[in-house]
Design a binder for these strands. Structure first.
Length: 484
RNA sequence: GACUUGGUAGCUCAGCUGGUAGAGCAUUACACUUUUAAUGUAAGGGUCCUGGGUCCGAAUCCCAGCCAGGUCACCA
């Protein structure tokens, strides 16, 4: 145990000996918060309104028998308090606990309740004069002390590993971190509000799946004892949402926590959140416009809370997969280019080829090599080759291209959308090509029953939040990122 | 998995070509009844990530490992 912990536990016992419960179960009144106090400070002073608030102590300045302290509450604002035993009820004047309250017993990090009045100090600081005080919860772990002057932080708590492992501490100490998660919550809220205007239905589909489908990634594997068989955490919910469109819903969506047993980097966490939306009787062109309107809606709602440089007002340009690839590579390839030719190109450009020279992988590798860092966007890349889009509907006049687009912003893939392939025969063919062993036959059965023309989209919520909060790392927008 | 950067007090960080482990804040004690990064004086606090090696001597050099960040690969 830490030295400072031992000291604080000793204090805890001393407090208890004085008859004070450091973790009381008393009732206490709260009638406002610090944010409201700061907004209405003049009124509150004029009316000498009684203030009942709680908060966590961030700083203590002892001045002889007077004490100044700063507390912060759930409204994320700080206010200064002034403590002098003479302002308490007279019966406490000779009380050892109250005499030494901030010299010995209360610390930075403690959560307190106070009753008092607002006044202005000599240096014109709005301050609450404490008349009653109650310790609500004692902090017995030393919290990093961040000091702030003129908005500049000193002695930060910025060790990434510690911030992520002890997010609760990060949230207490770093207001920026907390703001990110407030923005995250708002983004999700605004998406729900926007979708409700179209009467799209929010649904829950299985996280535990018998066949992990809808994407191609290594799943986390578990085991069902009663069924005596393997069961998988979903890598995608796509095939289930399409079943629901088959079932007659016009629009369904789910904020889907997906799990992929792959490695971690600044854009990937083993569990991540994708918003999937499927709308019947629409296609990918419609979805391009819809996505733009959605982003614009979120942006306008958040405009005064965030500071990002992306301009969502302009129309999002769209360019075909092979057009942009040829533009940046000076090649002249298309969906018909042979595998042999693609391999030649890869070798010529020193593109590392993985995955046993599969054609779909090679195309992907070539695209990433030439275009990956040039998609500042916002830009739609459309008309992806069919070979890398096994669930997307082919184009009217070209079976080798699909009605698919992806949204890129700051070189990051934010969303992936396509008109859904609804021909069960074609879908089965593509499944067989991809993997003969794990075909979701029930999904094929659903397609046989009939999926109306439908468009679907997956939006990476973690990445979207990172975009809106200027976070370069996805871990910054996931409360408890995976750590070893 | 590959390459690379880092791991020193509760926090933020110094520590040079190897020679007694450092600072600020935090903590403790004292002083101070309107301070605000409060101030002043003093004190305590270290498995220098772990394990080996080289050396008279290792936080420092070498090797292996652990953890984290970055880049790449995997994530169609």
């Amino acid at each position: 145990m830490l030295e400072q912990e031992l000291i604080k536990i000793k204090k805890l016992k001393e407090i208890e000996l004085l008859g004070i419960n450091p973790y009381p179960n008393k009732k206490y009144k709260i009638n406002t918060n610090i944010r409201k106090i700061l907004i209405n400070k003049k009124k509150i002073i004029n009316n000498q309104k009684k203030i009942y608030i709680t908060g966590r102590i961030y700083n203590i300045r002892n001045m002889g028998y007077s004490t100044f302290l700063d507390i912060k509450d759930y409204s994320d604002n700080k206010i200064q308090l002034y403590y002098n035993i003479n302002n308490l009820d007279k019966k406490y004047i000779n009380n050892k606990y109250y005499i030494n309250l901030f010299k010995k017993y209360l610390d930075i990090g403690d959560i307190i309740w106070i009753y008092g009045n607002l006044f202005i100090t000599k240096v014109k600081e709005y301050t609450i004069l404490i008349k009653k005080i109650l310790l609500l919860s004692k902090c017995i772990y030393p919290i990093p002390n961040v000091k702030i002057k003129n908005g500049k932080e000193y002695y930060k708590f910025n060790n990434l590993e510690k911030r992520y492992r002890m997010r609760y501490l990060d949230l207490i100490v770093n207001q920026n971190s907390k703001n990110i998660f407030i923005i995250r919550s708002l983004i999700i809220k605004y998406i729900r509000i926007y979708f409700s205007k179209f009467n799209y239905i929010e649904v829950d589909t299985p996280i535990l799946q018998n066949i992990p489908g809808g994407a191609y990634a290594k799943p986390f594997v578990s085991y069902h004892n009663k069924f005596k068989k393997k069961i998988y955490l979903r890598i995608s919910n796509e095939l289930y949402l399409k079943r629901l469109i088959v079932g007659g819903f016009n629009g369904v969506y789910e904020f889907s926590r997906n799990f992929r047993n792959e490695s971690i980097d600044r854009l990937h966490n083993p569990e991540f959140t994708i918003l999937e939306l499927y709308v019947a009787n629409k296609d990918y062109i419609w979805m391009m416009k819809f996505l733009h309107k959605l982003l614009l809606y979120i942006y306008k709602k958040l405009e005064n809370k965030i500071n990002i440089k992306i301009n969502f007002n302009k129309k999002i340009k769209s360019i075909s997969f092979f057009d942009i690839l040829n533009k940046y590579s000076n090649l002249n390839i298309n969906e018909k280019t042979s595998k042999k030719k693609l391999i030649e190109i890869s070798i010529k450009n020193n593109i590392l080829l993985n995955n046993k020279y599969k054609k779909d992988k090679i195309i992907d590798d070539i695209f990433n090599y030439f275009c990956k860092n040039k998609l500042k966007g916002p830009i739609y890349i459309k008309n992806y080759p069919t070979i890398i889009s096994p669930l997307a509907k082919s184009k009217k006049n070209n079976k080798k291209l699909t009605e698919r687009f992806e949204l890129f912003v700051n070189n990051i893939e934010i969303a992936n959308s396509y008109t859904e392939l609804n021909d069960p025969r074609e879908q089965l063919k593509r499944f067989k090509k991809q993997n003969k062993n794990k075909i979701d036959k029930d999904f094929i059965k659903a397609l046989k029953i009939g999926l109306p023309p439908t468009v679907g989209i997956g939006i990476g919520i973690d990445r979207l939040v990172a975009l809106f909060t200027n976070s370069s790392n996805i871990q910054e927008v996931i409360l408890f990122p995976q750590m070893k």
